[in-house]
Design a protein around this nucleic acid. Structure first.
Length: 195
DNA sequence: CCGCCGATCTTT
DNA sequence: AAGATCGGCGGG
C-alpha cells in the first residue's frame, strides 16, 4: 500500500467524503469533478452494503482502500464508491463534467442539458462508461484505466451537509456532502420527508 | 417545477 | 420483497 492509499485507509468515510469534493474522476478519456458524495460507515451503518459483513457483492469494500467498489442498483444502474478499507466507503453521487464531454453526451442520450450528464450516482457511471467490470480497480495507482486525481483545486471552504438520498435505514444521519451552488448536484435541497 | 410509477435484476 | 436509481408522463 502506498502513501496515497493510506490517505483512505481505515479512515472515517465521513471525514474522507468532503475531502473528495473537487477531485477528478477519470475514465476512458472522460473526466469530471466530484461535487456530491455520501459516506457509508460499514458494519455500524444499517444503510451500508457492508452492514452484515463481507459477501460476494461487497468483497471490494473489505479489500484495500483507494479502490473502486461498483455495484448494480435497482437491476439497471451502476453505482461507484471509493473504498476506505474495513467495509467503509464513499458513494460518488455527482460530477461536474470536465473533459470528454462529447463522449458523455453520446453515452447519456437521455440528458437534454449538460447539467444532467452526471447529476446522480447512476448517471455519472453512465457518463464515464463505468460498469461492474471495473469493480475492484485501483484508483490511486491505476491498473484498469479509471483513476482519482487532484488538479490542485482544494475542497470548497464551505460544504453543504444533508441526510443521505434514497435510503430508509439510518436516514437521520447527515452524511451527504456537496459543493454549494454547483448545478450538477443531484438534488440541491434536503430531501423532503414523506408524511 | 413537482410527484408518481414502471423498468429490471440482485440480494435477502 | 426490497433496494445507495432513473426517466417519462401527467398535472399545477
Amino acid at each position: 500500500m502506498t502513501a496515497l492509499h493510506r490517505a483512505f485507509y481505515a479512515r472515517d468515510p465521513r471525514e474522507v467524503a468532503p475531502e473528495l469534493l473537487n477531485k477528478l474522476l477519470e475514465h476512458d478519456g472522460r473526466s469530471g469533478r466530484i461535487v456530491e458524495v455520501e459516506a457509508y460507515v460499514g458494519r455500524q451503518d444499517p444503510a451500508s452494503h457492508a452492514y452484515r459483513g463481507p459477501t460476494k457483492r461487497n468483497a471490494t469494500m473489505f479489500g484495500p482502500p483507494g479502490h473502486l467498489y461498483v455495484y448494480l442498483s435497482y437491476g439497471m444502474h451502476w453505482c461507484a464508491n471509493v473504498t476506505c478499507g474495513d467495509g467503509l466507503a464513499v458513494l460518488l453521487r455527482a460530477l461536474s463534467p470536465v473533459a470528454g464531454i462529447e463522449a458523455m453526451r453520446a453515452a447519456r442520450s437521455a440528458a437534454s442539458r449538460d447539467r444532467d450528464l452526471a447529476s446522480g450516482p447512476g448517471k455519472l457511471t453512465q457518463a464515464l462508461g463505468i460498469t461492474g467490470v471495473l469493480d475492484g480497480a485501483d484508483l490511486v495507482e491505476p491498473d484498469r484505466g479509471v483513476c482519482l486525481v487532484s488538479d490542485g483545486t482544494p475542497p470548497p471552504d464551505v460544504v453543504v451537509r444533508t441526510p443521505r438520498i434514497g435510503i430508509t435505514a439510518a436516514a437521520e444521519h447527515e452524511w451527504r456532502f456537496y459543493v454549494p451552488g454547483d448545478p450538477n448536484v443531484s438534488r440541491p435541497l434536503i430531501p423532503r420527508v414523506r408524511p
